[in-house]
């Protein structure tokens, strides 16, 4: 059964479900730096530069394929963000109908170009983040953020939010499954029951979250203490990071 809950859980479990490939063995800091650089460069394309945006959006898929991470795995997760983008982008098609020359004999309404650009940017950026999440655990990403001097409370919040979201979705899935087992003949869940289901899921996730926090405290977790920094990248990794960022900058400015 594939439903929004399963999809949400699949996104949060990206690291567990992915083949980590050779990228899994690389220090987290270079991966985080290259991903951030990619995100900044990907969103810097102007709204009518569809061709460049599309080629740049293909990079995570090409890189993922080289590192034995299936493009389909990335595309499946990236496509979950598309409904939100389509909601925003479709309005542009209505409001911006001025033709823009894309090729010498091809003009497309500006709104359509903006929509295509948004779709490409979404597929590219979400795939890049998915690639990072697939090859780097949340603990490693947190450690890398700490070494980039992101304030400790923000990193701890990120870790706890990640765990709490997963718990909430898992609890909700359990409740929904139990509901369907006792109401096999019903199609879907009536609206009147959703309030109770969501409330129960939050309460149960809260209880489980509390138990987990107790267990963390017993193992000396203290949100006020700085998180440990990851091992320093090797010189080869540092060199590869610089080259990768330079290559991304080069592609950004030399792509059509």
């Amino acid at each position: 059964m594939s439903n929004p809950l399963d999809n949400a859980i699949a996104v949060l479990r990206t690291h567990q479900d992915a083949e980590h490939g050779p990228l899994g063995a690389v220090s987290p800091l270079p991966k985080v730096l290259v991903t951030f650089s990619y995100l900044l460069l990907a969103v810097s394309f102007r709204m009518h530069d569809v061709l460049g945006t599309a080629l740049f959006a293909a990079l995570p898929y090409v890189f993922g394929a080289i590192c034995r991470i299936s493009p389909w795995f990335l595309l499946k997760r990236a496509s979950l963000a598309l409904p939100f983008v389509l909601c925003a982008g479709l309005a542009n098609c209505w409001f911006d109908r001025v033709p823009v020359a894309v090729l010498p004999h091809l003009a497309i309404p500006g709104g359509v170009l903006v929509l295509l650009g948004l779709v490409c940017k979404t597929l590219g950026t979400v795939s890049a983040v998915t690639l990072l999440a697939a090859t780097t655990s949340i603990t490693q990403i947190s450690a890398a953020l700490t070494s980039l001097h992101v304030p400790c409370p923000i990193v701890v919040q990120l870790q706890l939010l990640f765990r709490y979201l997963l718990l909430t979705f898992e609890e909700m899935r359990t409740i929904v499954t139990a509901y369907h087992l006792r109401a096999a003949s019903s199609r879907g869940i009536p609206l009147r029951h959703w309030g109770t289901i969501v409330t129960r899921a939050f309460l149960r996730a809260g209880n489980r979250g509390n138990a987990i926090y107790f267990a963390m405290q017993c193992r000396l977790f203290d949100a006020r203490r700085p998180l440990p920094k990851p091992a320093r990248p090797s010189w080869q990794e540092s060199l590869a990071t610089v080259l990768a960022i330079l290559a991304l900058v080069g592609l950004r400015y030399f792509l059509p």
Binding site: S137, T139, A211, I212, F214, A215, R219
Partner: peptide, 26 residues
């Protein structure tokens, strides 16, 4: 040290090695 009744409440990191390393790191 305490081993909780519900193991799922205790194991919250992504991999086993990360979870076992959590206490010594702290």
């Amino acid at each position: 040290g305490m081993v909780f009744q519900d193991a799922d409440a205790q194991l919250f990191n992504q991999s086993v090695a990360e979870d076992v390393a959590f206490g010594p790191t702290n």
